[in-house]
Deep mutational scan, measured.
Amino acid sequence: KWTITVQGEEAIKWAIKVAEARNLDYTVHIDGDQAHITIE
């Protein structure tokens, strides 16, 4: 299990796209213009 933090709307969209493309189980916690994405 690991967490990445991305900043900015484009980076958030990209990170989610990558997680979905790899069929990963993930949760997103949005904090202002940052998102913390935890991959199970």
Results as ranks from 00 to 15, higher is better:
A15F: 14
I16W: 02
E40D: 11
I4K: 01
I16G: 01
I37V: 06
I30W: 12
E20H: 05
A15G: 01
Q34D: 07
A19T: 05
R22V: 14
K1Q: 10
I37D: 00
V18S: 07
K17V: 07
I30T: 05
G32R: 04
E40I: 15
I16T: 04
H36T: 14
T38H: 09
L24G: 05
I12N: 01
E20F: 04
D25L: 14
I4V: 09
T27G: 03
V6S: 01
D33A: 08
I39P: 00
T3F: 08
V6Y: 03
E10L: 11
D31I: 12
G8I: 05
Y26G: 01
E9M: 12
I37L: 07
I39W: 11
A15S: 03
N23C: 13
V28I: 14
Q34I: 15
N23A: 11
E9I: 13
T27R: 07
T3A: 04
A21N: 13
A21P: 00
T5H: 09
Q34T: 14
V28A: 03
H29G: 03
A15R: 00
T38E: 06
A11T: 05
Q7A: 08
D31E: 12
E9L: 13
E9D: 10
A19D: 02
K17D: 10
T3D: 03
A35Q: 03
Y26M: 03
A15L: 12
G32D: 03
D31K: 08
E20Y: 03
A11S: 06
H36Y: 13
D33F: 08
W14P: 00
A21V: 07
I12R: 05
I39F: 14
V18P: 00
G32S: 04
G32C: 07
A15T: 06
K13R: 14
T38F: 07
I30Q: 06
I12W: 05
R22Y: 15
D33Q: 09
I39G: 02
I4A: 02
A15W: 15
D31R: 07
D33S: 09
T38K: 04
E10K: 10
K13A: 13
V18Y: 15
E9W: 14
G8V: 04
K13N: 09
T3S: 07
I39A: 02
G8L: 05
T3P: 01
A15M: 10
G32E: 03
V28R: 00
V6D: 01
I4Q: 02
L24N: 03
E10A: 12
I30R: 11
E20L: 06
A35I: 11
A21Q: 12
W2V: 06
H29S: 10
I16Q: 04
W2G: 02
D31N: 09
G32N: 05
W14M: 10
A19Q: 02
Q7K: 14
T5P: 01
V18L: 13
V18R: 06
V6A: 04
T3W: 06
I16R: 02
K1N: 08
D33G: 08
H29I: 15
T3Y: 08
E10P: 05
A11K: 08
K13D: 06
D31L: 08
A35K: 03
D31H: 10
V18D: 12
Q34Y: 15
N23Y: 07
T38P: 00
G8W: 05
N23W: 05
W14L: 09
K13E: 10
T38I: 13
